[in-house]
Design a protein around this nucleic acid. Structure first.
Lengths: 241, 241
DNA sequence: TCAACAATGATTGTTAACAATCAGTCGGGA
DNA sequence: TCCCGACTGATTGTTAACAATCATTGTTGA
């Protein structure tokens, strides 16, 4: 558990070419780990372990953790350290309220603006999702389900909206991990492709309505009376494979 | 210019009671200064001066600057330091696109949810705005014009949306400072009160439409072919009066 | 057996010094 | 006069050591 992961050592021993490991790299990695449910809520994020994992000094790690805490992905407790955030039910409601407001508007607007290359990207994404679902690749499916929303926001061409949605989707991943009922699918089967279909056929109102329904369905799959305590292993999870 | 400001020294000499100066305090101060056009785009944010101003160590200042850069308020240039951001025209368009999308939806939704105490708050705000306009209190008016949007978002009761709008409004302040035509008023005379009226009378579509118009009007007041270089004095600007 | 408590190790928060880079000045030469 | 380069002070980036706090273990006593 506390054994330095080989990939971590790699990061320190070889400079990884011209790639510089800055705060955003660490933030990115933790974002991805949360999105894929590899980092569970309340997991302790030990500074030294993160230093080993990424091969950087403590300052970098602390700065990255500060950014993450600012985005609601990490909780910083004074003198106790950093933990993956455990959103409260109230917080969860805020996140989904904000998502509904933001993403429904995006779904509406994107119909007019979207270009063919972005449509292709989304189509390709849907096929990846289907494949992951058919092959029972649970981890991939979880990640892809969230990524659809992020890619749709990206298709809006607005990097600010993209960033906002990305934050909210990642926080949703924590929320689902905490309150999601295990038997309930993360994102029901055809909803993403239905949204895409509405976009393709140029129906903004329908795309918007479908997005709202979709988010409500996810929300209904939450059970706030059943918080799940979990345990994370950290070094291995974040290792640079 | 480089003289340590009295208020800055105050901050260091007296502990200011139980008030602890952490990153968010510094971030808050710089946010306010930008909102009030007291910090112009491209102003150099010298670390030591900020340390003196707030009476904290360099670490705190650097962490605050990191947060601000993450929110598009500050640009960090390696080995050159921190500068108040100078949004490009492309960035400006993104900000206003995002604002239109977000704030129109907020204006729509808030009609159903808003409570009387929030309505009162907004009414009171409008009267402050009017007073500032009538008395030619330019600085106050600038601040209040932006704050209306922030308060409206706050009235939605969603702290996430509030944070997003706050960031965008603050960035807008920089944009207006760079590209705004001086003779053009920041926020035309009655538009805020018209929006509030629509909300009060329970007309979500009208509130939304007015908000969109309002933001477009601000946008039309921008002139991207005329960037204005400006100079800031910093220590005095941020001093704890 | 259990609870309170002290001691120790681990982890975080902070400071200070050092290294590296930048910006502005001065001087020399065409 | 103008341009180029070395030099110096200022500023930023980084590291390491120190201080403070927390968590855990082991002990004592009822």
């Amino acid at each position: 558990m506390s054994v330095p992961v080989s990939s971590g050592s790699d990061a320190r021993t070889r400079p990884l070419g011209p790639k510089r490991v800055d705060e955003s790299f660490i933030v990115e990695r933790i974002y991805n780990a949360v999105m894929e449910h590899r980092l569970a809520p309340a997991t302790k994020l030990n500074e030294l372990k993160l230093c080993d994992t990424f091969g950087v000094g403590r300052m970098r790690v602390r700065r990255a953790l500060l950014l993450l805490s600012n985005q609601g992905i990490v909780d910083l407790e004074t003198n106790r350290g950093a933990f993956v955030a455990s959103p409260s039910p109230a917080e969860a409601n805020e996140v989904f309220e904000a998502r509904t407001l933001l993403e429904s508007a995006i779904a509406h607007c994107v119909v007019a603006d979207i270009g063919s290359e972005n449509l292709d990207m989304l189509r390709q994404h849907i096929s990846l999702e289907s494949a992951a679902r058919d092959n029972n690749r649970g981890v991939d499916l979880i990640r892809l389900s969230g990524e659809f929303h992020v890619k749709l926001a990206r298709a809006s061409g607005n990097t600010i909206l993209w960033r906002f949605v990305r934050e909210l989707v990642t926080r949703s991943s924590l929320i689902v991990g905490l309150f999601g009922e295990s038997n309930h699918m993360v994102c029901p089967k055809n909803e993403h492709s239905n949204i895409l279909a509405a976009i393709e056929s140029g129906k903004p109102e329908e795309a918007e309505a479908l997005m709202i329904e979709h988010l409500n369905r996810i929300r209904e799959g939450l059970n706030f009376s059943a918080p799940k305590p979990q345990e994370g292993d950290l070094a291995e999870i974040l290792g640079l494979k």
